[in-house]
Simulated scan of single mutants.
Amino acid sequence: MTRGDNAEILAQLYDRLHREFGRLAPVIIQVYAEEVGGLRLTFPDLQTLYRTERNRRIRVEFDGANTEELAIKYRLKKRQVRRIVQET
């Protein structure tokens, strides 16, 4: 990705932030720049974010005896629920 690509992506991001958050867009961008300015970041895709949050919820809701209930609730196999709960 070239600097020109980055500039275009940042312009698109600014436009979207401005549409969705109005006058807060410059503040949001300023906070990001202050916190991570100069760093090269890679953002996870939405699927990864959703999976991470789902797994966190499963760990919180797990009580030791509700593997099947969680599997049904989150549309997973019981084996997947056990694997998620064992991850730390």
Rank of each mutant, 00 (worst) to 15 (best):
R19Y: 09
D45K: 13
E53I: 02
R3A: 04
N66Y: 00
Y14N: 05
I9T: 14
L76H: 05
A65Q: 09
L24S: 15
L70W: 01
L70F: 07
Q47L: 11
R3N: 08
I28C: 08
R51A: 10
R16W: 03
K78H: 09
R83N: 14
E69D: 09
L39C: 09
A11H: 03
M1D: 06
E34W: 12
V81Q: 05
E20G: 12
N66P: 02
L10A: 06
I28Y: 03
Y14I: 02
I72M: 11
L13D: 02
R23P: 08
E87P: 00
R57L: 00
E34C: 15
I9A: 15
K77Y: 08
N6L: 10
L49D: 07
A33S: 13
Q86Y: 11
R40I: 08
T52C: 00
K73A: 15
A11G: 00
T2W: 01
I29Q: 04
I84H: 05
T67F: 05
R40P: 00
D5R: 06
R40Q: 07
R16F: 06
I84F: 00
T2H: 02
V31Q: 14
A71I: 06
K78W: 07
T88K: 15
R56H: 00
A65D: 12
K77R: 11
R3C: 01
I84S: 07
A11E: 08
N6P: 07
R16M: 09
T2D: 00
E34A: 13
D5I: 07
T52S: 02
G4P: 03
D45T: 09
V36N: 12
L70Y: 06
R82T: 13
Y32A: 14
R56N: 04
T2L: 02
Q47Y: 12
A71Q: 05
V60T: 03
Y32W: 13
A7G: 00
A33Q: 10
K78V: 14
G22V: 07
R79W: 10
R54H: 09
E8V: 08
E61L: 06
V85G: 02
L41V: 13
T42I: 14
Y32K: 13
T52A: 02
R75N: 15
P44W: 09
G38Q: 11
V36C: 12
R56G: 02
E61Q: 04
T88N: 12
G38W: 10
K78G: 15
R83F: 14
R16I: 08
A25S: 00
A33K: 15
L24A: 12
L76W: 04
E8Y: 06
I9H: 10
V27W: 11
T88H: 14
G4N: 04
T2N: 05
L10M: 05
I84Y: 01
E69H: 05
L49E: 07
D15E: 09
A25I: 04
R23V: 11
A25G: 03
K78P: 13
G37S: 11
L70T: 04
R19F: 07
R59T: 02
N55C: 04
